[in-house]
């Protein structure tokens, strides 16, 4: 009797565990199937076309791809140095009394849903961008900045964790030789934790590029490639969030599914690079 229950229990846990692989495969298959119409009708023009005009059955995804790349780039440029600063502050500078509350509040802020960052951006940051940089405030630049603030807590927390993996004995040896804090950071901690730090940046990048709600509020969903950062723009998730419930033709739907698949492939690739190339060592320890 026990033997039967044992086998049933073991195999059911195995089946359920394997279902996660099945779900992921299913997601890719469904998205691919649904995008078939658009892939066949539009081919490579989908990726290179700059015109997105659903009423004319024209679907060019380049403005959305461009928007995703540029807004994420702005977010990374702004967030990376601040995240490094915060991480250095938390791992080396701050006195014990400050370290814990600041560290915990940063982790808690990483848990705040992105829709709230988006809402804050719309009501409080859009007017500032409008006054300082001109334009209507709903823009690529605003989206990049709000995105950078949204990923900052996550990035700072994982960077700090990576820096904290440096063994104390290494740091102490360097201090004993008369190294200043900066000497220890640049010659001991950063070289030691390099892979982890880069990995966490790439992981944050992977999250940022698929982020929907933080940017949907402030980007405008305008399918136009503009070099002016204060002009409204769109990105892949912003297009999906705005247009999915409005699509009225098969080709329109199919194009949106192709966008979803594109987004999934891009973020899967980025996150895999972070995981397999940089964060492998973490798993073993």
């Amino acid at each position: 009797m026990n033997k039967i229950i044992d086998t049933v229990f073991a195999s059911s846990t195995k089946i359920i565990a394997m279902s996660i692989l099945f779900i992921v495969a299913w997601i890719f298959t469904v998205l691919l199937n649904q995008s078939m119409d658009s892939i066949q009708a539009l081919g490579f023009d989908f990726l290179t076309g700059t015109k997105w005009a659903p009423n004319l059955e024209k679907f060019g995804a380049l403005p959305a791809i461009y928007g995703s790349v540029v807004s994420t780039f702005i977010a990374m440029v702004l967030a990376v140095p601040i995240a490094i600063g915060v991480a250095i502050f938390l791992s080396e500078l701050a006195p014990q009394k400050v370290k814990a509350p600041v560290g915990v509040s940063i982790e808690l802020l990483a848990a705040i849903p992105s829709v709230i960052y988006g809402m804050w951006g719309l009501f409080y940051f859009v007017p500032i961008v409008r006054d300082v940089f001109g334009g209507i405030g709903i823009s690529m630049l605003t989206a990049g900045i709000v995105l950078s603030i949204m990923i900052l807590p996550f990035m700072a927390a994982v960077t700090r964790d990576a820096m904290n993996t440096t063994p104390d004995i290494l740091k102490e040896s360097a201090y004993a030789l008369g190294g200043t804090k900066w000497d220890v950071i640049k010659d001991i901690i950063i070289p030691y934790a390099k892979a982890g730090i880069i990995g966490s940046f790439i992981l944050a990048l992977g999250r940022a590029i698929g982020e929907t709600m933080a940017v949907t509020f402030v980007m405008g969903n305008v399918h136009k490639i503009s070099l002016d950062l204060t002009a409204p723009a769109t990105s892949i998730p912003v297009t999906l969030a705005n247009e999915f419930t409005e699509a009225d033709t098969d080709l329109y739907y199919s194009s949106l599914f192709e966008l979803s698949m594109l987004l999934l492939v891009i973020s899967f690739t980025i996150i895999s690079i972070a995981k397999f190339y940089f964060l492998r060592r973490k798993r073993r320890s």
Binding site: V30, P237, L263
Partner: peptide, 21 residues
């Protein structure tokens, strides 16, 4: 590995998937 990746995958894509199934 697949679950780790899924944890950071864009959630809007899951929405699109569930829409069609």
């Amino acid at each position: 590995d697949v679950s780790d990746i899924m944890m950071s995958a864009p959630s809007i894509v899951i929405g699109a998937f569930v829409y069609s199934i």
